[in-house]
Simulated assay, not measured.
Amino acid sequence: MSANLPIPAEFAEIAAICVAAEGMIGNRSALTVNARDLHTGLQVRRDFSNWIKGRVSRFGFVEHQDFESYADLSSPDLASPKARAQETKEYRLTLDMAKELSMVENNEKGRLARRYFIWREQQALSAQPSVSVAEIERRMMQALGGMVKSVVNKQITPKIEQLSQKVDGVLAVRPAGVAVTSSRTARGWLQHYGVVKRKRGMSQRVSSALKSLSFRMGYVVSQTAEEGKLCFHEVVANAYFGVGAGRHLLPKTVKDQKEMGLEPAPSPFTKTPA
């Protein structure tokens, strides 16, 4: 069917009122019809504003998907000296929505309008240039290549860029060139420093404190391989329990840092050690 095919005689009247033209619905271009024109073409007796609002509400049409609403400034009546321009709310409908509105009117005008919109869609489709098989294959390969690249970037590349290995049952993620050291959970460090009896919630509070201190000192927070619990670098733990807030949690039997083998507090890093 040619794009310049004359409009069939049976559609001449409705086509003159409901002009199907290219318009934007959401972020896509589509054939659209002005709702006020459709209201006129269908010869609906209800006033336009109540009619379109009622149809949208009753049939669940979605803005930016089935239609677009916009404000339009009407021209004043030049014959009346007191007439002023007024702002009206207009609606731009997709042909699918226009067909459904036409059908639910359940009269001859509605059935005629629906057939016209179907004919208009067929005309638009036939006017589109055909795509060769080679072009279709090229597009498919391009899309497939993009999908593969996305999978590689999301799942494989991060694992290549970060060295991962198990240390004492812990999956330690560290930058290249950094020596492997002991990492433990908050509970593990509490046990290591002799805190056997713990109050409820102590492990969680210590974990939060070690996490915050790790970020400030520039050390990576890793996770256990099985349970995914947070683990912390021994240098961070030494600083927290040796000279930080955690020193008050140590048992009274611990006399000084040397008895626990604690290291002096390190200087803070501005970024992850390299």
Rank of each mutant, 00 (worst) to 15 (best):
M1K: 06
I7W: 00
I7N: 00
P8N: 01
P8K: 02
E13H: 08
G23S: 08
A30D: 08
A30R: 10
L31P: 12
A35C: 12
R36Y: 07
R36V: 09
L38E: 11
L42M: 07
L42G: 06
V44K: 03
F48L: 13
R55C: 09
D66C: 05
F67E: 02
S69C: 13
A71Q: 11
A71S: 14
L73D: 04
S74C: 04
R84W: 06
A85V: 02
Y91D: 11
Y91P: 08
T94C: 10
L95Y: 02
M97C: 15
A98Q: 01
A98K: 10
E105F: 15
E108P: 00
E108H: 10
E108R: 05
G110E: 00
L112C: 06
L112E: 03
R114A: 01
R115H: 03
R115S: 10
F117M: 02
R120S: 14
R120D: 04
E121L: 09
A124H: 11
A124C: 01
A124K: 06
L125W: 10
A127G: 14
P129Q: 06
S130P: 00
S130T: 11
S132C: 09
E137R: 09
R138N: 05
M140N: 15
A143K: 03
V148T: 03
S150H: 01
K154Q: 11
P158S: 09
P158Y: 08
I160W: 03
E161L: 15
E161P: 07
L163P: 01
V167S: 04
G169M: 12
V170N: 04
L171T: 04
P175R: 10
S182M: 15
R184F: 11
A186D: 12
G188I: 01
G188S: 02
W189C: 02
L190E: 06
Q191W: 12
Q191R: 12
H192N: 12
H192F: 14
Y193M: 01
V195E: 04
K197M: 13
R198G: 01
R198D: 05
K199Q: 15
K199S: 14
R200M: 13
G201S: 13
M202D: 09
V206S: 06
S207W: 02
S207Q: 05
S207H: 04
L213E: 00
F215S: 13
F215Y: 06
M217E: 02
V220F: 04
A225L: 14
E227V: 06
K229E: 15
F232Q: 09
F232E: 03
V235Y: 00
A239M: 02
Y240T: 00
G242F: 08
G244S: 10
A245N: 14
A245C: 09
A245V: 11
G246T: 03
H248T: 14
L249N: 02
T253P: 00
K258C: 12
P264W: 05
P264L: 07
S267A: 11
P268A: 10
